[in-house]
């Protein structure tokens, strides 16, 4: 099994992963359907990366579950994250 590891400390809160994820699912750009969400705190200091599986059904809304980017060489959230805040923990993903 492979899984994604996140590092909230590293994350710069750019939400690139959300946009990339929506592209993986539907070939469109739409953070609201992404399987993960970046939450920035009000004072902009803290950031947390929340995955679909940890969301309430209300938070999920139109979101699609993460399939670890089936069919892609590398999960798109990992590929586009500029700071390696999301990384693959075992080989064989996608």
């Amino acid at each position: 099994m492979c899984y994604l590891r996140v590092d909230n400390e590293k994350c710069v809160g750019c939400k690139t992963c959300e946009v990339a994820c929506s592209y993986h699912h539907e070939k469109i750009f739409s953070p609201r359907i992404a399987s993960l969400e970046i939450r920035r705190e009000d004072n902009e200091v803290g950031v947390s990366i929340i995955f679909f599986e940890h969301m309430t059904s209300e938070e999920r809304g139109k979101r699609l579950p993460c399939d670890l980017c089936k069919g892609e060489a590398l999960p798109l959230c990992v590929k586009y994250c500029p700071v390696e805040a999301i990384t693959v923990q075992e080989a064989g993903c996608g």
């Binding site: 710069v12 750019c14 690139t16 946009v19 902009e44 950031v47 500029p82 700071v83």
Partner: peptide, 11 residues
């Protein structure tokens, strides 16, 4: 903290 905005690899 370092911080970036939407889809920004420059942060």
């Amino acid at each position: 903290k370092r911080q970036g905005y939407f889809a920004c690899p420059l942060y």
